[in-house]
Design a protein around this nucleic acid. Structure first.
Length: 702
DNA sequence: GCAAGGTC
């Protein structure tokens, strides 16, 4: 039997599969991994994420071409639900090879074998992007098996392949993936067109809305909500306060009541009723408390760490680079645990080497025995990802020092956090005080460090990072009968914490907005579109961004949550007993878009425009007037891409000839005069040959 | 070109 395995990524997946199954990573002439597994000849190929993208509206039909449609038509045609959804090859590259070439290699490899295994990431998107390719290349008939490789430890990769499941087992995941993709496309395109119109109606002509969709709208909404809550916070409001009893002993111990009351009067009443009590018996009990090292790193915690440590640049590129070299594991994961196998096969054997490289003086006695909370096989299985740790390739000191400063910092913290559970645990001495006064229990505690353990490393533990609650270094007092005094303690509720560059990534995760690898870029885009801005202290939603909050009915917190539920229902993992049919979320969204469209349409007439004549860049531009060979008079814009056409160039253009000049970016631009349409208006103007199909299709002048 | 998802 001969098998072709389709994986999702090269270095972080195909290569690891090859090492685990073949014991080597030799490549064939196509660059795919080739070897023998269980008596079968096997080729392991890879993708590079999604290699296909949605058709654009104009790809479906000319009618949907927003450049040709008038604004009113553009609104009328929403939602753009295709009769048959289609995808096309993306342009671009995976590493050094073009996507087209890579797909051709996959096609050839698939044609050459008797069976195909799908072994992309075991999640929704992995299933979608893998099946997309197999279907588009006509290889689906040969696909027999689905490999769910949740775990990158070699023993677990081998297990996943030997226990491969029938391909039909991921059918529902694929359907849910399609639904997610289509809902985002349909909503994104509709909301952009409709919001632009809403803005124009409000007089924001020519003002960029920026792109808008499920995630960006969600981000704008939660920033606005948090700011509104803070700006209108009433710290005196009853719901923002509660009251407890503070019992202070003559030797300075402070015990607090186990219960609180909503009204200050209730506590004052309690204290009055107990005013005769002046001595209380206080029990003291001594305990030892072990203090765990921090959890292993997940992507959002690395990002938070980076911001706190003043790394201003985007960190994804640094992490990608470290992962490609094998210095760290695959970085795009929100999981903070690893599997037992990964501990034994990947972390433990390299621990001493990493420890020496990072010049850590502590021993690693727990190297082979650290368990919960860092080990959770089930969580790893469900997520299909593991925490970020140091990788199988430990750099030499010279190699580490040749990396960029930020990469060195990131490697160090990821390395230390991977080693932390192997270090001695911290032990604290704790004294717990308790007493009962009538109906009310009181408690307090003191503690001090007995064994520092992993806390000897300042990068893992510093007093500065501890909250005020920390009772470290508190004084110990004996129990017994003590004189006491009761007081009211007002406990204030605080408004939600403001959103800052340091916490936004983690908060997006909490709100289910975007996925780990995409969040940093979403914030960057929203900032550059001017939808949100950092006012120096926290993020604010700008006037443009407020449209996303107040001016679109499509994306709300509820609808985002609802979509998540629907996708699970389609997968058969939701509340409903049987999976709900594909298309449920799309149809619901399409109805919401129609409602929004119908609300806008009455306000839009045929001459409605996004064009603002008062904005400088839209003012009438100087036009060139030339005569063609046939004696017709032509008018066209004198400029293109920062270049003003010379007389000779105008002459050549008027005769329908192609010219070449230097554009804004210093690169040569070639093109000629063509008949074009923009926003429903026909005109003659210079067209570059950047899009060869469009260029060939457009009529030239003669 | 507009989404959001993946990865190089």
């Amino acid at each position: 039997m001969s098998i072709f395995v389709l994986s999702e990524k090269n270095t972080q997946q195909a290569k690891k599969y090859a090492q685990a199954l073949f014991g080597h990573t030799r490549r064939n002439k196509e660059g795919f991994y080739e070897g023998v597994w269980a008596g079968n000849s096997m080729v392991i190929g890879y993708l590079g994420g999604h290699l296909y993208e949605q058709y654009s509206p104009a790809d479906y039909t000319d009618r949907w071409n927003a450049r040709e449609a008038k604004p009113r038509q553009l609104i009328e045609m929403q939602p753009l639900v295709p009769e048959k959804w289609k995808i096309k090859e993306k342009k671009g590259k995976v590493g050094k090879q073009s996507i087209h070439d890579l797909l051709q290699k996959i096609k050839r490899a698939g044609d050459n074998v008797t069976e195909i295994y799908l072994a992309t990431d075991p999640d929704r998107e992995g299933t979608l992007l893998g099946r997309e390719v197999l279907i588009e290349l006509g290889l689906m008939d040969k696909v027999t098996s689905r490999v769910y490789a949740h775990d990158t430890a070699e023993s677990q990769i081998r297990k996943a392949f030997s226990q491969a499941k029938p391909i039909a087992t991921d059918e529902l995941l694929y359907v849910a993936g399609l639904e997610r993709q289509r809902v985002d496309w349909l909503g994104g395109i509709a909301s952009f067109a409709l919001m632009k119109s809403e803005n124009a109606l409000k007089g924001h002509l020519g003002k960029g809305t920026g792109s808008i969709g499920r995630v960006k709208s969600g981000v704008a909404i939660f920033i606005e909500q948090v700011n509104q809550k803070n700006d209108n916070w009433d710290e005196e409001a009853p719901e923002n306060n509660k009251y407890g009893i503070k019992m202070t002993t003559s030797d300075g111990l402070v015990l607090k009541s186990a219960r609180q009351a909503p009204l200050e009067a209730q506590i004052i009443g309690w204290i009055k009723r107990h005013s005769t009590i002046t001595t209380v018996d206080i029990k003291a009990e001594d305990k030892k408390r072990s203090v765990n090292a921090p959890m292993l790193l997940q992507l959002s915690s690395i990002m938070t760490w980076a911001k706190k440590n003043k790394i201003k640049k985007e960190i994804m590129p640094f992490l990608n680079n470290l992962a490609l070299k094998g210095y760290i594991t695959y970085p795009r994961t929100e999981i903070n645990v690893i599997s037992k196998s990964f501990r034994d096969e990947n972390l433990a054997p390299r621990a001493e080497e990493v420890k020496n490289l990072l010049e850590v003086k502590l021993p690693l006695p727990n190297r082979l025995i650290f368990d919960k909370p860092w080990i959770n096989n089930k969580k790893v299985d469900n997520a299909g990802h593991m925490a970020n740790t140091y990788g199988d390739n430990v750099p030499s000191k010279t190699e580490l020092e040749s990396l960029e400063k930020e990469e060195q910092q990131l490697y160090r913290i990821i390395g230390l956090r991977s080693l932390a559970p192997m270090m001695p645990k911290g032990i604290d001495s704790v004294r717990q005080y308790s007493s009962q006064v009538d109906d009310m229990p009181f408690a307090a505690s003191s503690s001090s460090i007995l064994i520092k353990g992993w806390r000897e490393l300042p990068e893992l533990y510093s007093n500065k990072n501890q909250s005020k609650k920390s009772d470290e270094e508190t004084t110990f007092v004996d129990g017994g009968l003590k004189n006491v005094n009761f007081e009211v303690e007002r406990i204030k509720r605080h408004p939600p914490v403001r959103i800052t560059p340091a916490n936004i990534i983690e908060l997006m995760g909490k709100y289910g907005l975007g996925t780990s690898g995409t969040r940093e870029n979403i914030i960057k885009e929203m900032t550059s579109f001017g939808q949100i801005k950092n006012n120096g202290k926290y993020y604010e939603v700008t006037e443009v961004g407020k449209a996303l909050v107040y001016n679109q009915p499509l994306y709300t917190f509820e609808s985002t949550k609802e979509l998540g539920k629907l996708l699970l229902d389609i997968q058969g993992l939701g509340d409903s007993e049987t999976p709900i049919p594909a298309g449920t979320a799309i149809n619901k969204l399409a109805r919401d878009i129609s409602t929004w469209r119908d609300a806008i349409l009455p306000k839009i007439n045929d001459t409605f425009t996004y064009f603002d004549p008062n904005i400088e860049k839209y003012k009438a531009v100087e036009r060139m007037e030339v005569k063609t060979k046939s004696g017709k008079t032509l008018k066209f814009k004198k400029e293109f891409f920062g270049h003003t056409f010379s007389e000779e160039e105008c002459e050549a253009l008027s005769q329908g000839k192609e010219i070449t000049f230097k554009g804004n970016n210093g690169k040569p631009v070639t093109g000629m005069l063509k008949h074009q349409t923009f926003s429903g208006n026909k005109f003659i103007g210079f067209m570059p040959n950047w899009d060869s199909e469009k260029y060939k299709k457009a009529k030239s002048v003669r």
